[in-house]
């Protein structure tokens, strides 16, 4: 059911405006689908010189999926423009969140993604846990003992009980 211009203009604060998640996501996927279809598929999927049937082509399924995303994202974008979606109750919780809190979470992610082998499973686990406890504003020093205890326990669980090897840490190996 279409909504008139006036209805959109008079939309209560419980609704988004025209620039809403649906239009943004629709536009983003539309552009990505175009890039995928016209740049990535031609350059990063190679087809053999001879094929028995066009449906056997390695490009067939990615092309079908790419075109489907293109059409569906257009539908999403148009529907977002015509009928702005309602705001969710959780949106309020996401406003005004401390940058430090978010930055410490990103720092914990960086520790795991880039220093896991250098610091080892225990070292990176302790550091990331401390960063995340700080992000939550925990002040009890005893809690920080958990940040040291849990990585040790979980690492030992993986290595000795489950026979899954985890890195000891190149940095420590070089020192000792």
């Amino acid at each position: 059911m279409a909504i008139s211009e006036n209805q959109i203009a008079d939309a209560p604060a419980t609704h988004y405006g025209r620039l809403n998640p649906n239009t943004i996501v629709g536009a983003a996927f539309f552009i990505l689908a175009l890039v995928f279809l016209y740049y990535i598929i031609p350059n990063y999927i190679s087809s053999p010189p001879f094929m028995q049937h066009p449906l056997l082509s390695p490009k067939f399924l990615p092309q079908v999926a790419g075109w489907s995303v293109l059409v569906l994202s257009l539908v999403l974008m148009v529907s977002g423009l015509r009928v702005p979606p309602e705001r969710e109750p959780g949106d309020e919780l996401r406003r005004g969140v401390s940058v430090i809190r978010q930055g410490l979470m990103v720092a914990a992610g960086v520790v795991y993604a880039f220093f896991f082998e250098q610091l080892g499973a225990i070292g990176s686990g302790v550091l990331a846990c401390v960063l995340l406890f700080l992000a939550s504003g925990l002040r009890n020093p005893l809690i920080y003992l958990l940040a040291a205890a849990f990585p040790v326990l979980v690492t030992l669980l993986f290595i000795y009980l489950l026979n899954v090897p985890l890195p000891a840490g190149e940095l420590w190996e070089a020192w000792f």
Partner: peptide
């Protein structure tokens, strides 16, 4: 506040354990 750092740790260790590769940690993130 205590539970989720431990959950993240399990995620990282579990992803790494598949191929012993930090590439999988990046992929998971």
């Amino acid at each position: 506040t205590i539970l989720l750092p431990i959950v993240l740790m399990f995620c990282i260790y579990g992803a790494y354990a598949v191929n012993n590769s930090t590439f999988d940690i990046g992929l998971m993130l």
